[in-house]
Structures are given as C-alpha cells and as structure tokens.
C-alpha cells in the first residue's frame, strides 16, 4: 500500500505476486478475526487491503501485458497469467460481495482460493507460454471460456461450502454468531444454481471451441488426450447435473445443489491438473 500512496514511478520488479498475495492475506486475516474484532474499522481496513491488492494486481498484469507486447509474444498466454487473471476475477467477486453484503462473512471462503491461484501462478512462472493456435482467435475463446468457467465453478464451490455450513448450523438450532454471519440459505441456493448454470454454459463454449480448434487443418488432437478426455467428461457431468436439476424438482433444493457444486470443483481440480501436466495448452 505504501508504494501506492507514495506515487513514485513503479516498475514490475517492485510489484511482485508476493505483495499482491500479502495484501489479500492481510484482508483474509482481518475477515477471519471478525469474532474478536467487531468494529467497523476492521471491515474498512480489510476492504482497503483488498482494494490495494486489486490495484497492485491490475498494475502487475498491465506490466506483464506491456512486456509481452514489446517482446512480440501474445498477451496473457501462460499458465501463470491465466491463474493470475482467474485470481483477479475471484477477488473482484469477493470485494463486490463484501461491499454489497458487509454484514456477511463471504471473503473468508473466497480469498483462500485466490491465494491458491496466486501460488499456482508462482509455480508455473517458469513454464513455456502457450503457442500457435492456443493464442489465435479460437484458442483465445477456448482459453477465456474455460477461465471464466473455472472462476464460476470456484464461486459455486465456496457458496456450496457456505450453504452446507449454514444449513448445518440451522439444523443444530444455532443462532447467528457475530463472528460468522453467512448469507441466507435462499441467497446461497440461488447463487449456487446460477454459478452451476454459468459454468455449464462456459465449459460448453470452451469444449466447443476446443473441438473447432482440433478440427483445423494440420491439427491432430487425439481424443484420448487425458486433458480432452477429462474436460469432456467434466462438461458432460455438469450438463447432466443441470438437466437433472431442471427435470427433477427436488434436485433444485438445498444441499443437493451444494453437493453438485462441490463435486464440480473436485472435477475441475482434476481436469486442470491433467491439462497442466499433459502439455495440452502448449499444443
């Protein structure tokens, strides 16, 4: 935050992913200690750290994009950049929810995922950037749809966890505690469903654009490629869950949607791991 206030000329070396993660970590700690420190000052301090982190995050990505443009590479064409953009979208959602629902503890469930994504970005820093079609138009659609779909699955996962905790608390007749005030079950269920539908649509676009990419002349993507196989299975699973939800009304209610979004997340982690290690994006 200090270098943001001082206003001196920034260089990319001065904003590291460590600075960004540290801002989010402080915000997470401030949100987590809500039971011990209820004052409004804590809320505003946490929000300030989040906003400072977002500004640093945006500046960092802008520097990365400028560097890539100067070197003639495509913009945001590496796993590290992809993870950082996903983290930025998630932290944006966390900040928006924190402003819209200041009485609720929401950021505590989203920020750990943001930190994990920043950690993944750091681990993938040395990996080769995507090449060829991966950065051309269909490749861009493919990557972007899967990126937003991943964020949507992540949001569904965290609201699913919140739903299960809230439902469990209410079943056990626990009143609202000042420390952990979750949104209502009705809101969580609606958010959960919307996240599920959005992820189905985006993953559908991702898979379809992947098929188009694979059908291009000179391209020989094997259907037995573990990344293609697992992401297709995941897409089918989500579509199946959505159809089941529309057709069978009880599936729309309560814990069932929450369990589906948790399963989606586990699936997603598996798919991303396979994609990462199969070198699929590089092809």
């Amino acid at each position: 935050m200090l270098w943001l206030i001082s206003g001196h000329q920034l260089t990319v070396s001065e904003i590291s992913t460590f600075c960004i993660a540290a801002s989010y970590l402080v915000a997470l700690v401030l949100e987590a200690i809500r039971p011990l420190w209820l004052a409004r000052a804590r809320y505003f301090l946490a929000l300030s750290f989040l906003v400072a982190g977002i500004v640093a995050h945006l500046l960092y990505l802008a520097f990365v994009a400028r560097g890539a443009m100067f070197s003639g590479q495509g913009v945001f064409v590496s796993w590290a950049d992809w993870s950082l953009i996903a983290a930025l979208l998630l932290v944006g959602a966390a900040t928006g929810l924190m402003i819209k629902r200041p009485q609720n503890t929401v950021a505590v469930f989203l920020l750990p995922m943001v930190l994990v994504l920043i950690g993944v970005a750091e681990l993938c820093k040395e990996m080769e950037p995507f090449k060829g079609e991966a950065i051309a138009s269909w490749g861009f659609v493919h990557g972007l749809a899967l990126l937003i779909g991943t964020v949507s699955v992540g949001l569904g996962f965290s609201t699913g966890i919140m739903y299960l905790i809230q439902s469990n608390r209410l079943k056990n007749k626990k009143g609202p505690s000042s420390g952990l005030r979750l949104p209502s079950l009705e809101w969580l269920q609606r958010f959960n469903r919307e996240a599920l539908l959005l992820s189905a649509i985006l993953l559908g676009i991702g898979v379809a654009s992947g098929v188009i990419l694979g059908a291009q002349p000179g391209k020989e993507l094997s259907p037995t490629d573990p990344a293609i196989l697992s992401s297709s299975m995941m897409f089918l699973w989500i579509v199946g869950a959505c159809i089941f939800e529309v057709v069978y009304q009880p599936a729309r209610q309560g814990k069932k949607v929450a369990y589906v979004t948790l399963a989606n997340f586990v699936f997603l982690v598996l798919v991303l791991t396979l994609v990462l290690y199969s070198g699929h994006a590089g092809e």
Binding site: Q166, L170, G175, P176, L182, P183, L185, E186, W187, R190
Partner: peptide, 14 residues
C-alpha cells in the same frame, strides 16, 4: 423477534 430476526432471516432473503 429472535425467531424472525435471528432464524428466519438466516433462511430467507426476503
């Protein structure tokens, strides 16, 4: 008041 504000509000948004 506890029934409505502390419990019903945790289940329903409106």
């Amino acid at each position: 008041s506890v029934a409505v504000a502390d419990f019903a509000r945790q289940i329903f948004e409106r």
